[in-house]
Design a protein around this nucleic acid. Structure first.
Lengths: 222, 222
DNA sequence: CTTTTTTTTGATAGATTTTTAAAAACTTGT
DNA sequence: ACAAGTTTTTAAAAATCTATCAAAAAAAAG
């Protein structure tokens, strides 16, 4: 589940944003100042940082600059003014997107979803009745649950979220098992096989979608 | 250098955007309608698509949806209205960013730079409808896949990525097989032959492009 | 602690690709 | 036109890769 760091000096705003985001299943951490945010980022990896521009001591621009010295985490700036000059400044400094106040829940969530999508970290993805959902850890076809093991679920998730892209066995191991895993590539084959069987039995034509790329790996095609 | 597809029915707007972008070193292609854009995307890989929302026949939303069926290219929407509802709609459909008219040169370039920065470099190359893509591990001609073996795919990749440069058989072996390979040069010939056959069968005039340099090796000419 | 489920491993058959080697065809320079 | 050198073609052997299966090992659940 994506974790989001929200940085704002007003606690009312922190509450509001956290409320919206946690309702959507995101995990939120709060920072009441730029220094506080930078300190937190030394210890934790966040998926997205939401950064208010107007803050005492260190403003949002400065925090953004500082973050970019050591991290490429996606940053969304929160700005009160609707001025193009500010937008350009933010983008040049290294922000990825910005939201102008006042904003509503829909806009906030849409921007975060768009950013996560671009990074390949969606919470759910569906294709022709086949639905993959991170939150309940379930794959369903036409409403029917296809029971998968954790590894199987992760593999099909990465493939579905990145259609047309080939993943080598080693890439999948790095992504799912972790960089320091000793697991060998052939293990992936077994999981793919078992997963294919289970999905096929559900009636979904997985053989049209999940392709073996000889000598390279596996990919999902739409 | 990144190539950008600009889609707008007004030629004045096409001129303006192209002028700004080309001054910054980007290469621009123009499309005067959604259909025109979709057609172009079958033949060429673009780094970014800029899409006007207000167009006759097929509007920007629809074009965006269509593109998302087969490509994850970053899309920037051009919208006249500054309405949050439109922004949310665009992001939900699969756009990555949007710009409201009127916009200035700085804003346009800042947004494109931000998107490219976040994206990293795309590993693909296209020439006259022949598209080579690393991430998909696919070579296509006018949208049709040309099935290649791994070695064949690598060879044509190196040649296409370095037009006009001659590669000796030994160079190709070093690059593809690895420095310590014992494979002999004649093996390359076999792969080139098989690859030529497959590409020729697709209809692409490969004999005009992939040339044998007698006594030296092979090269791709534009 | 026992049972159940998941993950990993190893062995093998089948499919595909890669390599080799020799003959044929083609270039080049004289 | 000829000879020497190089590339292309061809076909078969060798090597590599994938799918499959069963069984062992590990992890999770009861």
């Amino acid at each position: 589940m994506p974790t989001i760091l929200v940085v704002d000096d007003e606690s009312r705003m922190l509450d509001l944003i956290s409320f919206y985001l946690e309702a959507r299943g995101f995990t939120c951490e709060r920072a009441v100042s730029g220094n506080c945010a930078l300190e937190k980022m030394k210890h934790t990896i966040y998926d997205i940082v939401i950064l208010d521009v107007m803050m005492p001591n260190m403003d949002g621009w400065e925090v953004c600059k500082q973050i970019r010295l050591f991290s490429s985490v996606p940053i969304i700036m929160l700005t009160a003014r609707e001025e193009k000059k500010d937008i350009v400044k933010g983008l040049q400094i290294g922000a990825d997107d910005y939201i102008t106040k006042p904003f509503n829940e829909e806009e906030l969530v849409a921007r975060i979803d768009a950013l996560l999508r671009r990074l390949g970290k969606e919470k759910s993805i569906s294709y022709d009745g086949l639905v993959w959902e991170e939150t309940n850890h379930e794959l369903t076809y036409q409403g029917e649950v296809i029971p998968l093991t954790p590894k199987e679920f992760s593999i099909i998730g990465y493939l579905m979220k990145n259609p047309n892209r080939v993943f080598s066995r080693e890439q999948l191991i790095d992504l799912i098992w972790g960089m320091d895993s000793e697991t060998e590539g052939r293990t992936v084959d077994s999981h793919v096989r078992n997963m294919r069987d289970k999905v096929r039995k559900s009636g979904f034509p997985i053989d049209h979608c999940l392709k073996t790329v000889w000598g390279v790996g596996y990919k999902w095609i739409n």
